[in-house]
Write a protein that binds this DNA or RNA. Structure first.
Lengths: 150, 150
DNA sequence: CGAGAATACATTGTACACAATTAAACATTA
DNA sequence: TAATGTTTAATTGTGTACAATGTATTCTCG
């Protein structure tokens, strides 16, 4: 007859090393730090880089669309986008067809960063020393978790 | 003859969906959010919960040791620990044998949270709907990445 | 021993994250 | 169409993260 783990310090489930969440938390921050030298050369933060990835591909998106893709809300995005607007990287304006929406449009200064950023993903892939198969497997796990958690 | 990817928008490596980093960033934040309801019942933030995991196991640690285990520096830990001290969850004092170090000691109010927290890991494991094998495989990948990135 | 290096923590300033609230525009439906 | 509800951003307040700097303590080695 099995018993549920006790609440004592012997409960190994309560040890940091046995948490599933902590490695994600740690790896996520370490990955961001690994980007740092490359992003600093462009004077970019990591979340700003993510916004650029979307704008380089789509040129124009609403705050809502950015939020859906990045899983961020306006509380995070509004000030972040304002800072990027100050740098002339993008443009913020209300959608005339629906004044509730704000359209974010890539400006030439933002577009010009793309050429300098295009080497970053390759650098990062080399940095982690993983086979294509391992990366593919990892991607599957992550996608599964994303769907489970959203 | 292969060419390196161009810097144009067609460079699929520059798309958000093909980044390895973004899923970690997203999963990490989603996991934290999944903890939220349970941690809120204890009036805890996620990093504070991580500190507790270590203190429940070790009772007493220096700021340096906490930082090494959580990969956080004093810039993050000092204010976080001060907030936890205000709640009487722990105690901060200089080590008499080395006045540079600060010893963090779990107090009874902090210890008493352990019993309420012990169900959290199990809840989270059920939440992600993954087999033990999948979790073990994922853990391996994460551990590999952690060592690569530290 | 004593000067300089190294260590451990605190502080400062910037930038996320995110819950909660507000406000304006739009949609719905009775 | 007018009241009600929904959607979209902005705002407010709190709490991390982290680079850069400051400061007191300890170590090291000539």
């Amino acid at each position: 007859m099995m018993h549920p783990p006790t609440s004592s310090a012997k409960n190994s489930l309560l040890k940091l090393e046995n948490q599933l969440c902590f490695p994600f938390y740690a790896v996520s921050r370490l990955l961001t730090k690994a980007y740092q030298p490359m992003l600093q050369a462009l004077d970019l933060t990591y979340p700003q880089y993510l916004v650029f990835l979307l704008l380089w591909e789509h040129q124009q998106l609403t705050v809502k669309e950015l939020g859906e893709k990045l899983l961020l809300d306006s509380g995070t995005l509004t000030p972040l986008l304002k800072r990027m607007e100050q740098r002339q990287w993008l443009n913020r304006r209300r959608d005339p067809r629906d004044e509730r929406s704000v359209i974010i449009e890539l400006l030439p200064a933002g577009r010009s960063l793309e050429a300098q950023a295009c080497a970053i993903p390759q650098h990062m892939l080399e940095r982690v020393h993983m086979s294509d198969e391992a990366i593919a497997a990892l991607r599957l796990h992550l996608t599964h978790l994303l769907t489970q958690l959203t």
